[in-house]
Design a protein around this nucleic acid. Structure first.
Lengths: 245, 245
DNA sequence: CGTCATGTTGAATATCATCAACCACGGTGG
DNA sequence: CCACCGTGGTTGATGATATTCAACATGACG
């Protein structure tokens, strides 16, 4: 099942990936030179739902690219409560913020069973070898990380809670569309609490906002199952003029 | 004046910078190989207070590293109001979020007279030449951008307005310390409105929060002039356990 | 079948935005 | 020199909105 094609990109080996595989997962394969048959091979890593990909403070030895599944990126403060600031999914780069430190600066936890490609730091920061192409890939993927996270800042600041939730759903739907999945029906991979932490709201407010959107006939909600009835109505409030992704 | 040493890092040429200069401004010079005397030379760019460094939608041709001064990074939405999501200062990398697009994805405006080093995109994404070292520098500087911006997300989401303002001041003080300036007395380079836009507050709330902190004896405020009286009290509410920077 | 995690909904309270008045400062022009 | 005006900043009163505390519903799992 894992070795099957993902969105039309066949994977040569269930336990390893070429640089080309990585580029395809990142949707940056158009930037790769057609040559390079003897690419480095990257190992695969699988993480079960609820397990940690890495923990705050661990020595950083690799970045990851998500091939399948959902995760959450969590920061714990000294009082013990947590703040989620990203829900990485297929095609996202993980660990980049930690690169300039010598340890991971957050916890990253799988929300669903996940399948990732492991990019060793050595591979990345070493001069020579095929690193030039890899550097370019990582640079551009990282740029996208920044770009997306800026959207999230705007999202978290927007005043009306209903608008925040609506925009989050719109962003998620857009990402599903880009990946070739249905953007009308999907499952929220995170709890209301997680979503609230991400959006800067309490879980009750998230629940109320979802109910309100459902009451207005814009979506229908059944626990984690979301059905978008009026896509246009989701994006309208305080839309930002750059593409999230 | 511009050609004078900055924080002990002499600059060889007032109108050009070597890769080593860039590394020093980024405070990443320890990562550079000692060799490479024939580095690429980067041009300097000066921007007057109030002027644009670049505008949303312009074709992206360069990243910038701030050598001196303060700027603001602004996103305008369709309704015409603006949202600030960064106040780049000395040692910061600019434009990285735009790298994965073919145009700048925000407006960047100088708050004070600024002096920047221009890093052409061609230089960056070209294989060969001294690009390996430059790539490494940019990658790590970009990682820091992400790291800092995540702190800002947490900042913008934190519930109490007073805590947001306090944490912002603490962050700014820390950055001044790192640059070798006084962390007890400094001038806010931005208006209350800008600060509010950045923190997700109105300018009135920012003003009130500053007054409240002053009333508690934690700081003293005279328009843009801030004096920190009790540094410990600034960081206490909802402190995040990773270093901003 | 009970227990736990998750989610919904209600009522009371705290907090921030809004609207508004006012002050200080810097520049311009009479 | 001073009146005038615009920008930036402070402070107050009021109302909208989200949080908090709480009760209850539902589904998963042993």
């Amino acid at each position: 099942m894992v070795s099957k094609p993902i969105l039309g990109h066949p994977v040569s080996d269930p336990d390893g990936s070429t640089l080309r595989d990585v580029a395809e997962i990142l949707r940056l394969d158009h930037l790769l030179d057609a040559s390079d048959p003897l690419n480095p091979r990257f190992t695969r890593r699988r993480v079960k739902a609820g397990d940690y990909l890495y923990r705050f403070g661990e020595a950083i030895d690799a970045l990851y690219v998500v091939r399948l599944g959902f995760l959450k990126t969590v920061l714990h403060n000294s009082q013990g409560d947590e703040r989620i600031f990203a829900f990485p999914m297929q095609g996202d780069l993980l660990g980049f913020a930690s690169l300039c430190h010598d340890h991971y600066v957050n916890d990253t936890i799988a929300l669903t069973d996940c399948d990732l490609v492991r990019i060793p730091i050595k591979e990345l920061l070493l001069t020579g070898y095929a690193s030039a192409q890899l550097d370019r890939l990582v640079c551009l993927a990282a740029s996208r990380v920044v770009s997306v996270e800026r959207g999230c800042v705007g999202l978290a600041i927007t005043v009306r809670s209903e608008a925040r939730v609506a925009r989050f759903l719109a962003m998620l739907a857009k990402r599903y569309t880009d990946l070739g999945y249905s953007s009308r029906n999907f499952i929220l991979p995170m709890t209301r609490r997680d979503l609230g932490s991400y959006l800067g709201l309490t879980l009750e407010t998230v629940s109320r906002s979802l109910s309100a959107l459902a009451g207005a006939g814009i979506i229908s909600v059944d626990r984690r199952e979301i059905r978008i009835l009026q896509p246009d109505m989701l994006k309208l409030p305080t839309e930002f003029p750059f593409s999230i992704n």
